[in-house]
Nucleic acid binder design. Sequence first.
DNA 1: CGGGCCAGCGTTACCGCTAACAAATCGGCC
DNA 2: GGCCGATTTGTTAGCGGTAACGCTGGCCCG
Lengths: 348, 348
Amino acid sequence: MTKPSRRSRGSITVQDVAREAGVSAMTVSRVVNGGTNVREATREAVLAAIAKLNYSPNSAARSLAAGEATQIGLLYSNPSAAYLSQFLIGALAAARRAGCHLVLEACEGERAEEQAEATRGFVQTHVQGVILPPPLSEVTAVRDELEAAGIPWVSVAMGLPPEGSLNVRIDDFAAACAMTKHLLDMGHRHIGFIRGNPNQTSSAERYRGFCAAIEEAGLDLAAMPVEQGYFTFRSGIVASEALLDLPDPPTAIFASNDDMAAAAVGVAHRRGLHVPQDLSVVGFDDTALATTMWPELTTVRQPIAAMAEAALTMLLDELRPRGQITEPEQVLAHQLIVRESCAPPPKR
Amino acid sequence: MTKPSRRSRGSITVQDVAREAGVSAMTVSRVVNGGTNVREATREAVLAAIAKLNYSPNSAARSLAAGEATQIGLLYSNPSAAYLSQFLIGALAAARRAGCHLVLEACEGERAEEQAEATRGFVQTHVQGVILPPPLSEVTAVRDELEAAGIPWVSVAMGLPPEGSLNVRIDDFAAACAMTKHLLDMGHRHIGFIRGNPNQTSSAERYRGFCAAIEEAGLDLAAMPVEQGYFTFRSGIVASEALLDLPDPPTAIFASNDDMAAAAVGVAHRRGLHVPQDLSVVGFDDTALATTMWPELTTVRQPIAAMAEAALTMLLDELRPRGQITEPEQVLAHQLIVRESCAPPPKR
DNA sequence: CGGGCCAGCGTTACCGCTAACAAATCGGCC
DNA sequence: GGCCGATTTGTTAGCGGTAACGCTGGCCCG
């Protein structure tokens, strides 16, 4: 009398699949994973059994048996909420595939000590690797702490990552260059630029891209007014006011992110300038803000979710050496999104 | 010669703690969990050992052994990104504590068939429970599908949930009532209201709250102009234009969410009206948008992350009967956030 | 004073899967 | 045909934790 073990959960296991396919559990495991050294006929039989039983492996058991990393940290400060949600979506998708948990930790403070403190939270909870989205990818307090604890990390969306570090990014330089060319193509010859926060290397890269496009067009870079911003809406207001207060204001403003671009549009409206008829404004990032304003913003889209996925995958490859060596650096494709905030300059 | 098993990961296990505390592994487990039937002295010894060794339980092993639910689905459509990120933060925190995975699935379409399709994705991946943030909490196609598969779900932020269903929410009625009173206290007697999408019961609740406050103040409800909106920025533009086009436009606009309030501010600016001097505008939700606009928005904050945590916890209590019966319904506290978009009405 | 009961703790046997090793199978070549 | 190495498959022993049950000793009741 083989009464079913009272603890059995009734779910389909490798054993069931193995029996169905007429092989051993180990072979099923091999097929499900890499699948090395399994005869084609066998593999097909196993796959058929899997499909028939609608088997899906138990990730808890898998990571327990394989002794794999299961806790990946994600330290976030306050990038725009839109960025974070996209990022989490991508990271969660990858985490689920890999069967690992995402451990979030907020890092609100600006001071190095607070940042180090938040990082130590990870060390104590035995996180095996950490993902650093911007702007934390550039904070040395965080990185030093991880380094000291021997925890590998991957930085996301740095403008210019240091050699040899794990990182995923887009080409900020090329993107800014393309955006500038778009403005030039529309006929703008007098473009104001609002720089991003200097604590992030992407700010410098975006500005470099702007400069390169201007110079390539044979224009005088010195004639282009530049204001310092800090990626916040408020800083965008100040910078835009400064640009529009100039005796000869620009016909277009290129803000280094969407928040500051939105600020520029707001300032223009307050002054009775119509966007884009009187002033063109473009941003960078394509956050949700870009479409919850009026007119909708021409901007550059980063594949945020894909970057998060790539970051997690890269980190796991590092933690679970499976033979294949992945590139320590990945540059994903950006995309120029043309909307309504941008038009040819007004005729004089 | 007890060479350490070559597979040991070197991490601290219950066994280590048990040895340190001079008890058995099972006792450690009991202390770590509920802790029933353990003598106080023993518990303290175990806790001391845990602290000394900095032990943290392996969640993979735990859920494997306990046979607990490990995959919780979260079906999202496109609420504001700000909402989603807060929601995910809360859900992830709870998921980690419980040692379960969050499985995201996007549900973009509006058609019932698409929604059912997305839901079926969950059924196939053996998700044990589902969380439905707004607006999906109200979509019958989704709920029917889950019902059919026998998967429990919890709906979040419905205005008026059906009796007996698992749900977490705030009191939309009371919040809208409080917000309206705030406007009345400032001296407004002519307030325009922009309703939310009728496919969500919270829209009706918010409107009910508005009405209740107006009537309680002894004002004539019929004199308050009301426009239909759909929670989108664009619908807010249309509604605001209509309100401000009235021969006797209101001195304040209460929009049923922040996106529409932002639209109202945008429209006012276009017309040369200053906010809040000429027109007060208030919103609902306190999304990131509320502070990335100018002036910053007076609004109602929902404890989004806390609601997500509560939802997941509730679902797990349902799935892992631990004796204690949790309330199938939880109403969390909202908060009136007063910022700069609101002032006494202009003197005539 | 013996037996039943229960709090408190230990023992055993797994949960579902996979690393490591052992065994079996298959060609290829002398 | 038989031997050898490479490939394919099976077997065993856990990964770290917990459910179920067994054992102990004190307490109460008859």
